[in-house]
Nucleic acid binder design. Structure first.
Lengths: 357, 357
DNA sequence: CACTCACATGGATACGTTTTCATGCATCTC
DNA sequence: GAGATGCATGAAAACGTATCCATGTGAGTG
């Protein structure tokens, strides 16, 4: 009953050849047609499946790809993970998953575990900065960042980088000149074009007459915040820029606090879907009507954005594509390391924004 | 720069001991205090991390745990995955993830990959039946099912238990008398008490005067459907029981078709959060007001249920706990295999149900 | 002191694979 | 026909670890 799996040795014996030959046949090496056929037949008959364990040890790498996200409960990261999985599956690579909770410490721990596991390629939505990712790179890991860049010098390093070319077609309202040309990121990454997304949203709100626009940020939203500051200011009313940690409670507290401390604000830009959720909840709790009393734009297009009433106007970023492209990047060993990829965002106007009251 | 990692041999040499001793010290075997201290110091200094590759090969198992879910975009499975990850992390075990898309074929393929990878313990929200899971078990895998049971004889195995029970005492919310004890499943699994959840919801709707209640089911909802049939019938109006596949499009089509073909229905029970979403959307599209024209109860309490207007009345099942318990089960090798665990569900009344129009 | 017992220790082996290397055979070239 | 060339092939080494087993050392017991 406890049938042990057949090894390459069993196949070799049964086929009357050496193990080297079996290995070659199965890895596509050269072999005579006759031998190949025989080996294949025997392997199929024994239901032989090469053990990744042996192979991994031999070539000193697991081959799998690691995936680190802050929280799978966040629909966006679910989408991203699905993208990674889709690409990995088509490449036949296993994916080992970790959830960091947006905690650099947990993140570092998980990276350590992956290292130990022999995983040498990973995709990460980083929480920590150089403290975590320097060592990882030094250990020989190929890491592709998704959705964000590690904190350290990310802000000034990347917020200057708009899309390669296409911000022009999104100039909805006024004719503000497109941002300066993109400075390519220093690290391989797949990002959404936060900057254009935020700019477009801010312009849209401005066009509706809003002047006191708040930003609700969460961990890893540095680029979005920077883009927001750039788009609205200067001067930037700093009280209108508030932050939450990764939890839902914190997001709600931040949103609620914002509404209460600044009843004069007329629009809110939520930096992520959890924050958008919190904003809707907090507004309802305080009897603020959307969009009559306050307009709301949320980053991330999630399925439930349409369920709200009114349906939420969102900045959509292609979560699944981001994951898929990141996986492609990390799997592409041929040629030199590719640089950052920036995917377009899109403002989807639904019903949560109205003219300034 | 490309510093190769230190091996156990390096540590042994540097510490002036044999590799066996190092191995023992690190795995908690016996060693003299002096030696132990010395080895530990050297290991720390060399930043030695034992390679899981070598260990795995030696003991012929990866140690990690596999996790198979239908779709990470579904918030419920995200919660479940978070639970699994939390438990796995505290046990120091890596988790390798696969998304099946509710397709038995993909599922079987993923199981094969895990097998190959040396993963011998897994948690699955199964799509396929015995065709997939028989071989997996025969290959020596320890598998714990979560949220569902494999199709084969799950339906009659689990829903058949117990008499319909006197529906006379309509203690609506928390006072519902516990159903007859569930007959333990034949396989290790962690499930929500679907039966009670559905019964409670149906009674609640009945109490509001609803008589034509529809059920919107998706893949893997067999137990819920059976519970629904049991709770409403007989006779069961079969036109009021409709099914969708796993996709959002299919869910919407099913919901929309249901509303159009049976305009006389007054309440809908959605078997999952995707179906609930579809129901809300379809109702809105057809200008049906919730709850005035149609009452709605959704399985799964997801954060956005509260965002809808009106907020959705739901049957909450503890997704995170289900994942966590499943991971505990699959990690507990001590003692004999534990049986099925059934976690309670809870009807959370919000605003999506009203008296029959 | 002889003997035993417990225990710390290191050498050797096995895990299943890939890859290198040498061998043998057949074919080709001059 | 002799040498060179090409190719299929198998033996063996390596990957990093855990564990079996034999050895050595100390203490404890008679």
């Amino acid at each position: 009953m406890e049938a042990k799996r057949a090894t390459i040795k069993d196949v070799a014996e049964a086929a009357g050849v050496g193990v080297a030959t079996v290995s070659r046949v199965l890895s596509g090496g050269s072999a005579s047609p006759h031998t190949r056929e025989r080996v294949l037949a025997v392997a199929a008959q024994l239901d032989y499946r090469p053990s990744a364990l042996g192979r991994n040890l031999r070539q000193r790498r697991t081959g799998g790809i690691g995936l680190l996200v802050p929280d799978l409960t966040d629909t966006f990261f679910g989408q991203l993970a699905e993208g990674v999985l889709a690409c990995a599956r088509s490449a036949g690579e296993p994916v080992v998953l970790g959830s960091t909770g947006d905690d650099p410490e947990q993140e570092a721990e998980l990276v350590g575990m992956l290292l130990e596991q022999g995983v040498d390629r990973m995709i990460a939505v980083p929480s920590g900065g150089a403290d975590t990712w320097g060592p990882a790179a030094r250990a020989g890991m190929t890491v592709v960042f998704a959705d964000r860049l590690p904190a350290e010098r990310a802000a000034d390093g990347l917020t200057g980088g708009g899309p390669p070319g296409g911000a022009g077609d999104l100039m909805l309202l006024d004719g503000v000149p497109p941002p300066p040309p993109a400075r390519p990121a220093e690290v391989p990454a797949v990002l959404a074009d936060d900057r254009t997304g935020i700019r477009t949203a801010v312009r849209y709100l401005r066009g509706l007459g809003h002047r006191r626009i708040a930003f609700l940020g969460g961990p890893g939203h540095d680029r979005r915040v920077a883009a927001f500051r750039e788009a609205v200011g200067p001067p930037v009313d700093e009280d209108l820029v508030v932050f939450a940690t990764g939890s839902r409670d914190s997001a709600y507290a931040a949103a609620s606090g914002l509404f209460q401390s600044r009843p004069d604000l007329t629009a809110v830009l939520a930096g992520g879907n959890m924050l958008g959720e919190a904003a809707v909840l907090a507004a309802r709790e305080l009897d603020l009507r959307v969009p009559r009393d306050v307009s709301l734009v949320m980053y991330d297009d999630v399925p439930w954005a349409e369920l709200c009433s009114p349906p939420l106007t969102v900045i959509a970023q292609p979560g699944r594509d981001i994951g898929y492209r990141a996986a492609e990047l990390v799997l592409r060993t041929s040629g030199r390391r590719p640089r950052a990829v920036v995917l377009p965002t899109e403002l989807i106007v639904r019903g949560s924004c109205g003219p300034r009251r």
